[in-house]
Design a binder for these strands. Structure first.
Length: 266
DNA sequence: CGGCCATCCTGCACGC
DNA sequence: TGCGTGCAGGATGGCC
């Protein structure tokens, strides 16, 4: 499922492929995926001027207005016609097209003139300069929440999803059911470092899932090879050999090593 | 406020 | 083989 590194990889690809394109037509075979008061009026005729990312949103900037794309779990943006599960299509003046393909149909493409309004509630970007270890400490100690659901909360911190939260908590040796304000400062710093290094390494590897966007070149993210706990339930911990446990936390599959990761509950 | 649940969807891994 | 069941999950909204 696309999280920050995968979305970042998609955005970088789009910057090289769709900027400058003029949208001449659009189709929405799955109407719910395209959210706009008057899609044709607001989108057709627009020129794409840039592509950026905020949290897990792809922000397509146009000469007037923005398209916010959220891939959710199975969404993909591709210039190659996919046979199945196409939800939205943009046709460009150049003859190229952009296909929004989404097997589970949870993804959305939203037209807005005011992205700040739509994205304003989202927390800090974990790779930004102003996301400091001390700020993170203040954030965590300002709340009494289970650490795993808190890290998944986009209004608290942007971009993390189920995979990278499990990985970061393992690397920082914090048990997922720990309470945010009970985690000592040194552990918080470790978690901050783990989040940044894991996200950076995954971006470097072009993400974990098959979410590339490049011309005919089928490069695939390779970070799945670096995963230490996610998807490894009942397998030995790579650090101590204890079997990795899989439980549900906040309705999410959660993987951790009960021996390496300490539970802080105050 | 925080935790929990349902909802949206489809494919796939099961068990019999 | 083929059917039914349950599970996976990001974000939102309702409930207690």
């Amino acid at each position: 499922m696309p999280e920050l590194p995968e979305v970042e990889t998609v955005v970088r690809g789009l910057q090289n492929t769709i900027v400058g394109e003029k949208i001449m037509d659009l189709e929405a075979p799955w109407e719910k995926a395209l959210v706009a008061d008057d899609p044709y009026e607001s989108i057709v005729g627009r020129v794409i001027t840039g592509v950026s990312r905020r949290a897990k949103y792809i922000v397509i900037e146009m000469d007037e207005g923005f398209l916010l794309v959220h891939l959710r779990m199975t969404g993909k943006l591709t210039p190659v016609y996919p046979e199945k599960h196409v939800t939205v299509i943009l046709h460009f003046e150049s003859g190229n097209s952009l296909y929004f393909q989404d097997t589970r149909k949870f993804g959305r493409m939203v037209y807005t003139k005011d992205p700040q309004h739509a994205l304003g509630h989202i927390g800090p970007e974990p790779l930004s300069a102003d996301f400091t270890p001390d700020l993170f400490y203040q954030m965590l100690h300002g709340k009494k929440r289970l650490i795993k659901p808190l890290l998944l909360d986009q209004s608290f911190l942007a971009g993390l999803g189920n995979i990278y939260v499990d990985e970061a908590l393992f690397q920082a040796a914090i048990q997922p059911l720990s309470v945010s304000l009970s985690i000592p400062k040194k552990r918080v710093y470790s978690l901050h470092s783990a989040i940044q290094s894991i996200l950076s390494a995954s971006i470097e590897a072009q993400g974990t899932t098959v979410l590339n966007f490049s011309h005919g070149d089928n490069r695939i993210g390779s970070y799945q090879e670096a995963l230490e706990v996610y998807g490894r339930g009942d397998e030995p911990c790579l650090k101590c050999g204890t079997l990795i446990i899989k439980i549900k936390v906040g309705q999410r599959g959660t993987h951790y090593c009960a021996s390496c990761q300490k539970k802080y509950t105050g």
